[in-house]
Design a protein around this nucleic acid. Structure first.
Ligand SMILES: [Mn+2]
Ligand SMILES: [Mn+2]
Ligand SMILES: [Zn+2]
Ligand SMILES: [Zn+2]
Lengths: 141, 141
DNA sequence: AATTATGTGAGATTCAATATCAATAAGGAA
DNA sequence: TTCCTTATTGATATTGAATCTCACATAATT
């Protein structure tokens, strides 16, 4: 992931919130990889780097980032939420290997269009969708 | 839902399991409606009908039914698994109202086909998928 | 520096789901 | 039918992710 052009301090303060070391740390940690990580991952990585932070603060901060569209929350069906840095990313969905956990991102305009058609057909106004394909990756089958 | 032509006793015993009142009761309860219900719903409905059963047994029995493709387990993102009777149902995905919880079932051959294409493109062999559209239904928007 | 309200940390709590284990009962044998 | 073996059940404890509580810390303003 390329270095952020995002000014977290400005965003945080525009929300009327306080800019803190903990919030900056969580944001940096999430930006440090392209992975789809869970809150516990973030918590442990920060602790390992000697940064003192609590689980509660990790959860609370992630929620702030999600609300400001800097991070996307994902439920990949393994019982815990995962998060990905999405401030510069176009929409995409996921292909997941049920054996090794590998995650491939895909985007298909045709499917996106059909989703809108389906919503219209049933009188729904769509706000978001979940589209996940599960199976075995090349290496695992 | 039309009355079952399924012989649960035969299926259960073919699995080398014992046919019990509890297992039959859970199966009957799941068949009694077309809804997407959670385990607690099933548990309470049975108790209300005077059937003595424990939560643990409800969970365990549902798992047996899922493994035998009589019931489909769904994660609709509200923190608890939901179940639908699917012994006679063709595959379908879901459109969910985030306001009132209404669930509409849809099926689109084109999307199903594209999913296969995507899997092939990335070298995956697909085993299942989750496709859920969230938004406001006609009544709620 | 003083003030004040927001943010944080440690631990308690919630809730769905699973595990434990003594008691029960299904189903095969006689 | 009765007996026997063992899967199943129920009551309860436990797990794990996520949230809540509240005394204390600290960001931000004056
Ligand atoms: Mn992704
Ligand atoms: Mn359905
Ligand atoms: Zn794999
Ligand atoms: Zn609605």
């Amino acid at each position: 992931m390329k270095p952020s052009t995002i000014d977290l301090k400005a965003i945080i303060r525009a929300e009327g919130l306080r800019y803190t070391n903990q919030r900056e740390s969580v944001w940096q940690e999430l930006q440090s990889s392209d992975d789809h990580r869970d809150a516990e991952d973030i918590y442990f990585s920060l602790r390992q780097k000697g940064i003192n932070i609590s689980r509660a603060t990790v959860y609370r901060t992630i929620e702030v980032l999600v609300k400001n569209n800097l991070v996307r929350k994902l439920d990949l069906g393994d019982g815990k939420n995962r998060y990905e840095c999405k401030w510069d990313a176009a929409h995409h969905d996921h292909l997941i290997c049920t054996e090794c956990g590998k995650i491939v991102e895909f985007m298909n305009d045709q499917v996106e269009g059909i989703q809108s058609d389906i919503a219209r057909e049933y009188g729904f106004s769509l706000s978001y969708h979940i589209h996940q394909l599960f199976g075995l990756c090349e290496d695992c089958r």
